[in-house]
Design a protein around this nucleic acid. Sequence first.
DNA 1: ATGCGGACCTGTTAGC
DNA 2: TGCTAACAGGTCCGCA
Length: 271
Amino acid sequence: MPELPEVETTRKGIEPHIKGYKVKSVEIRQAKLRWPVPKDLEKKLKGEVISHVARRGKYLLLCTKAGTVLIHLGMSGSLCIASSSTSLKKHDHVDIVMNNDTIVRFHDPRKFGCVLWFEGDPAEHPLLVKLGPEPLTESFNADYLFRLSRKRTAPIKTFIMDSHNVVGVGNIYANEALFSAGIHPQRKAGSLSKKRYTALVDEIKRILAEAIEVGGTTLKDFVGGDGKPGYFKQSLNVYGRGGETCVKCKKDLKEIRIGQRSTVFCGKCQS
DNA sequence: ATGCGGACCTGTTAGC
DNA sequence: TGCTAACAGGTCCGCA
């Protein structure tokens, strides 16, 4: 489920429940995720205070003085706040139990996610160190993306979904941003003008920010919920609408594959 | 260095 | 109804 807005919504949802509290124990029911959950996670975490919950790209970081729990939700993962009386569901793989009877529960049917431990500056972690800028910061701008894209022959959609270029643009929002910016998803990244990158960057920022705002409105349901904030509810112009009519020109939307990912666009509005 | 395809894994849905 | 195939919101890795 997680695109960046959902990860950020998850961060905001869990932080107030665990910030400032000590870890009492850790339960690992399934260690076989994308990478093994470290066996000594409990030993490392027990007694540590969660100072805050941060996010880098789609990675969530539970920060303590001793080190950082690095969590990625993969394709199907979610976190929720549970208590000792919450019934266990299938695929509830990891619990981090706090000393306030609160549990951070990691759930992931497809096991593409991860729960890792890292001592030292998390920005130096191998999985984070090569990540591109955060899309909602100043350092992600048209100048940056335009320069980076010169001589690049990959489709623009692939280019903006590559976390080395910018983090947090997943398949849904790549489709939506390209539609809103009027850019054909198969255009070679290096063939687009500075002006078009300005439009694209603006749309990426606008769409992600709006989605985070929508997610924020459902935070009250976070505890004991299924960990799925309401980003489903937001209106999507193209994603999942292949064959339906374009909201702008009423022509049929096309659906193709780019890099094995479903890609929907309007052949008339995007070039 | 860049770009591409394969890999990880389970659940849901479409089609026969 | 039951079986099978295709597909799903991610991203790392190895190869050309």
